[in-house]
Design a protein around this nucleic acid. Structure first.
Length: 584
RNA sequence: GGUCCCGUAGCUCAGCCGGAUAGAGCGACAGCCUUCUAAGCUGUUGGUCGCAGGUUCGAGUCCUGCCGGGAUCGCCA
């Protein structure tokens, strides 16, 4: 039950009925009509901008148009009062009987409350993490992983058909380097003393790969030509790294349904070549010379002719090369084939989650998908900004170069996955994030993770205590939903129900904007409403949730608690954070 | 130099495809424990929404130009 969408329909219906007054409006104009909760509660429960956005096309003054709409809206069963205010707002005050209905709907719907249909079952592909399989995941990967995972869950709840995908970069030069690094560890395992040259991966995490290679191949690779040992060492290392990455993701409660190999784009069928041929047939490929970029570090710039994609024809700033000087494909060429493959699999809605340092890549990828799909597919790229790691306000330095970086696993092991996930989502994706390892485990209001989880635990505690105090009361949601909810007439209680009523709309809006952080902020506000009401029971005992001498009131309030539990659980599930039963 | 992101209270940040008097937490100050978890709550304090124009009934939000911070700019991914 989403009162906002219900009333949006009511308002649009009222607008359509203006036809009988000789006022006809284009259908498109209706899309601008919205119903929202006014910031100021004295403006009523719902407000619509209909009269203001339609006045021009109706050829009427906003307030005159509002008068006509107000008459119709005032006749609706759930409306107690209609006011016209300011430049032409129509403010609706709903009958008190509306809120019990909303609460009952939430309680009886359970996990289904908030589930939306805005997605319409449309297929959408969310690609996230896609960390190179050249080592364990470090803390920098965390944010994109959690963001993508939560976004996928959000879209799922909003009614999209979501596929969660990971692109394994197992075809480039980096995995060759990985293979050489693994070979050195293999030599080391054979008893050789090694030194790791600049440019190879120095981390200890390849030692087990070396040992495994020795166990499987003995010394047979040692004096073999590179062409023979490199593919073996490389593949063994990739497999080992991917296994480790999957474990890291599991520790973070991040999941994927598809792991897509970059190499599978080149063999057995060269899909990269096919993609380039498609673009060439369109006339969007040519041989040309790029201008030297200004201001960049271009000391070893060498002007030369190369194969270019005409991305400027699709909104990019310069045309982009597809072939390296050694004749292999650029990463961009592979990525075009990959995104084409996604489109061929039916994903016309594609979302990529990238680190902000890849921001310069967005336009060309969008241009490429537009071109190669003939304009049918679109790509939204969500950039996640840096995470700066602190401990008690002191920066935690990390140097990837030395191989001595903070791994994702270390952070999860130290503070727990719930703290990591919630904090990563308690910020817009494009804002940098300071993550303090000490603060996120603090059990205080400073720490939103704790605050929201505590609200859920407190609710559950109330329900447990209620069962002990009133053992014969049936606290199942189905029964609570039929309690005398009209007895919830305290302003704080109604405010909570109104907050719950916003949840379905919030899910829709957050999903359409691709912004899971809105869910986190909403949960914080709901938790705050609840803690506040809980405390009012101290000064005013008649406001306590459990009233042993008034079973009817207890049932109504416990239904309210159950409604809060329902929404907290639903929202936390989207964020991938556990709704705990008690705090320890 | 080009492109992208950011700039809102002393600090950290929200602000829902433009909407009414711009919000929250922290900090500071003043209060609330015989009580369903005080691991919490209440109140006070606090803003020229970076600057200047523009669009319109209306701009923190959209457009243009500046200022400041960050990222990035063929042969890394």
């Amino acid at each position: 039950m989403n009162i906002f969408s219900i009333f949006t329909q009511h308002v649009r219906q009222a607008v359509a009925e203006l036809g009988s007054d000789g006022i006809s409006l284009p259908q498109a104009a209706l899309d601008r009509v919205v119903v929202e909760a006014p910031r100021d509660p004295t403006h009523g429960d719902l407000a619509t901008n209909a009269a203001m956005v339609l006045s021009k096309e109706a050829g009427m003054k906003p307030r005159d148009l509002a008068e006509k709409l107000a008459v119709r809206l005032g006749a609706l069963a759930d409306v107690a009062k209609v006011d016209i205010a300011g430049p032409g707002f129509i403010n609706l005050t709903l009958k008190a009987s509306v809120w019990p209905k909303v609460l009952a709907a939430a309680v009886s719907a359970g996990d289904a409350f908030g589930r939306a249909t805005v997605g319409g079952g449309a297929k959408v592909n969310v690609e996230y993490v896609s960390a190179n399989p050249t080592g364990p995941m470090h803390v920098g990967h965390c944010r994109g992983a959690v963001f993508g995972d939560a976004l996928a869950s959000l879209l799922d709840v909003a009614g999209y058909d979501v596929t969660r995908e990971y692109y394994i970069n197992d075809a480039g030069a980096q995995v060759q380097v990985l293979g050489r690094s693994a070979y050195l560890r293999y030599c080391e395992a054979l008893g050789e003393t090694i030194s790791i040259p600049e440019g190879l991966y120095p981390g200890d995490y390849l030692k087990p790969v070396g040992e495994a290679l020795k166990a499987k191949y003995g010394a047979s690779l040692h004096n073999a030509p590179e062409a023979e040992w490199l593919p073996i060492c490389r593949d063994a290392a990739i497999e080992a790294m991917m296994a480790e990455i999957r474990e890291d993701l599991a520790a973070l409660n991040v999941s994927h349904s598809v792991f897509f190999s970059e190499r599978s784009l080149q063999a057995p069928v060269d899909k990269v070549r096919a993609a380039i041929d498609t673009l060439r047939a369109q006339g969007n490929i040519y041989e040309g010379v790029l201008e030297r970029p200004k201001g960049a570090d271009d000391a070893d710039w060498e002007e030369r002719e190369q194969t270019l994609f005409r991305s400027t024809a699709f909104g990019d700033d310069v045309d982009r090369p597809l072939m390296k000087s050694d004749g292999t494909y650029t990463y961009f060429a592979s990525d075009i084939a990959y995104h084409k493959d996604k489109a061929d699999r039916g994903f016309l809605d594609q979302i990529d989650v990238w680190g902000a340092d890849h921001g310069g890549y967005v336009k060309r990828m969008q241009a490429a998908l537009k071109a190669i799909s003939g304009g049918t597919a679109s790509l939204d790229v969500k950039l996640v900004q840096l995470v700066r790691l602190f401990r008690n306000g002191e920066p935690v330095r990390m140097s990837k170069r030395s191989g001595d970086f903070v791994t994702l696993r270390e952070v999860v092991d130290e503070v727990g996955r719930d703290a990591v996930r919630f904090m990563m989502l308690y910020r817009k994706n494009d804002a940098t994030l300071d993550f303090d390892l000490a603060k996120v485990v603090e059990q205080s209001k400073d720490n939103p993770v704790f605050y929201v989880q505590y609200a859920h635990a407190r609710c559950r505690s109330i329900l447990r205590n209620a069962q002990a105090a009133l053992p014969d009361l049936d606290l199942s949601p189905a029964v609570l939903a039929s309690a005398s909810l009209d007895r919830l007439d305290d302003a704080g209680e109604i405010a909570i129900v109104q907050r719950l009523a916003q949840y379905p709309r919030l899910i829709e809006a957050a999903a359409q904007a691709h912004e899971p952080h809105r869910v986190a902020f909403y949960l914080y506000e709901l938790a705050s409403d609840f803690h506040s009401q809980w405390n009012r029971g101290k000064d005013s005992p008649h406001l306590r949730f459990i009233m042993e001498n008034d079973r009817q009131m207890s049932s109504a309030r416990l239904a309210l608690v159950q409604g809060i539990v329902t929404v907290l659980r639903s929202g936390l599930a989207i964020l991938g954070v556990e709704a705990v039963e008690e705090m320890r």
